[in-house]
């Protein structure tokens, strides 16, 4: 390398060093070390308050759940009681609509099956004769007062109705013997049945 070239290189190096010096900060002293201060009271208070909040919230949720559970249990009890009530009513209804009950009630009311059945033609209005009278009049109760077609569920009801009916009849007769306002008197001149 020539002397001039060397001079040129040194000059360039001086320029570079000068610009670096200009950009880099200068040395400065570090802040003085201080030991970390202990937790402040406020932090403890916040933590405790948070903990208390969590406990209270948990208690609240537990109380609400327990309350809800009790409520659910109450509702379940009410539901099962309602179901039992419904079952009791359904059983009563089934007994009341059984054919034995209907037949004995009808018989008690003096109803009998029709003697002769008739058909009316919707087209012509003509009346034709249908089934004749049965040879036996259908009866619900036999000569012993028992159902011809037994039903343990109804028999007691029939007896009950019978007993109630007799008691009501006896009470009515007693009232009529004593007389009461508005009682219908036999028409004069009409012979009483012997």
């Amino acid at each position: 390398m020539s002397t001039a070239a060397l001079r040129q290189r040194d000059a360039e190096r001086d320029v570079e060093t000068g610009s670096e010096r200009a950009e880099k900060p200068g040395l400065r002293a570090l802040p003085r070390w201080r030991p970390r201060s202990g937790p402040k009271l406020i932090h403890g208070a916040v933590a405790l308050a948070g903990l208390a909040g969590i406990v209270i919230a948990q208690l609240g949720v537990s109380v609400a759940l327990a309350d809800g559970a009790m409520e659910v249990k109450d509702i379940q009890t009410q539901t099962s009681e309602a179901k039992l009530h419904q079952q009791a009513m359904s059983e009563q209804l089934a007994t009341l609509e059984s054919p034995q009950q209907l037949a004995s009630t009808a018989q008690g009311l003096g109803m009998v099956s029709s003697e002769q059945q008739h058909f009316i033609s919707m087209a012509t209005g003509e009346v034709t004769v249908g089934a004749d009278a049965p040879k036996q009049t259908a009866q619900a109760l036999n000569s012993g007062g028992l159902l011809y077609v037994p039903n343990e569920l109804v028999q007691s009801q029939v007896q009950l109705d019978d007993a109630t009916g007799k008691a009501a009849l006896a009470a009515q007769q007693e009232r009529e013997e004593q007389g009461y306002p508005g009682m219908l008197e036999p028409v004069e001149g009409v012979a009483a049945d012997d």
Binding site: P99, Q100, A103, P134, Q136, A138, Q139, A140, N142, S143, Y148, V149
Partner: peptide
């Protein structure tokens, strides 16, 4: 079924 049983029971008794 009910009516048939009722008829039958009456005839059985008679």
């Amino acid at each position: 079924q009910f009516s048939t049983q009722q008829i039958l029971a009456q005839y059985q008794e008679d």
